[in-house]
């Protein structure tokens, strides 16, 4: 008992975010995710405080830890200055590092997320970038968004952006030497390793589910079960 907790407790977000939870439930009362999903941050804080490996492992393999929106409204309201949102972030990191994330539907979303975010940063230097933000994946972008997508150069020029241009300005082409530095940072700090872990574990799970990795990624991005919802 306590090995998983000991590992979790090494995370600075747990050092910052879990001092002594009195389980009052204020975090759950303010939480937007608790209203939408079958989710209760108070229970998660309580489980972590028990230091019980079996219960913590269940959390790491389950859907609950992926419901939080990381708005961190809980931090403002906690009367003990805890940060349930930060503890959730530490649990998520641990779930990925240990390969447990593939056991839950919401955890399996890590493949499309990691691929898309890391691709944007390493290739362009941005987390969100117009050339990879497609209307077909984002129909809520609306008729105006579709118009922006279809007339990208002309619209961004009109808005004073410097799309793919050299020099400063919005959406400038970030110099290759700066992108190379981001890649070196990824290699030194574990982001490259995280991508490898996510790819490897997802590949095994896709095989187990009888899918190609591309089918698995698309399903993780598109589909969700109603059972998550707090109806």
């Amino acid at each position: 008992m306590g090995k998983l907790y000991d590992r979790l407790a090494q995370d600075y977000r747990v050092k910052e975010g879990l001092r002594a939870c009195i389980n009052c439930g204020t975090c759950s009362a303010i939480c937007p995710a608790a209203e939408f999903y079958k989710y209760d941050p108070k229970t998660i804080m309580n489980i972590v405080q028990t230091r019980d490996d079996a219960q913590i492992e269940e959390l790491l393999k389950g859907d609950q830890i992926w419901y939080c929106g990381e708005c961190l409204s809980c931090v403002t309201r906690c009367p003990r200055k805890n940060a349930p949102g930060l503890v959730i972030m530490a649990l998520r990191s641990m779930s990925i590092d240990m390969g447990y994330f593939i056991e839950s539907e919401k955890g399996r979303q890590q493949l499309p997320l990691t691929r898309r975010m890391q691709n944007n940063i390493l290739n362009y230097g941005y987390c969100v970038y117009p050339r990879t933000f497609h209307y077909k994946d984002h129909p809520e972008y609306g008729t105006v968004g579709k118009w922006i997508n279809e007339n990208m150069e002309a619209v961004y020029e009109r808005l004073g952006a410097h799309l793919d241009q050299i020099g400063p300005g919005a959406l400038r082409k970030i110099p290759q030497e700066s992108l190379d530095e981001l890649k070196a940072i990824f290699d030194v700090t574990g982001a490259t390793h995280r991508m490898e872990v996510v790819e490897e574990a997802s590949k095994k799970m896709a095989e187990k589910m009888g899918m190609t990795l591309e089918e698995y990624e698309q399903q993780a991005f598109d589909e969700t079960s109603q059972e998550h919802l707090n109806l």
Binding site: Y12, E70, M117, N120, C127, G190, A191, R194
Partner: peptide, 27 residues
Amino acid sequence: FETPHHTTCGGIAYHAEAVPQETMMTI
């Protein structure tokens, strides 16, 4: 002052758990 060499802070990727905390901090 703005330099063309600045990049994303990595924040959205970090909050999507696509990169670790150390990566975000180093960026």
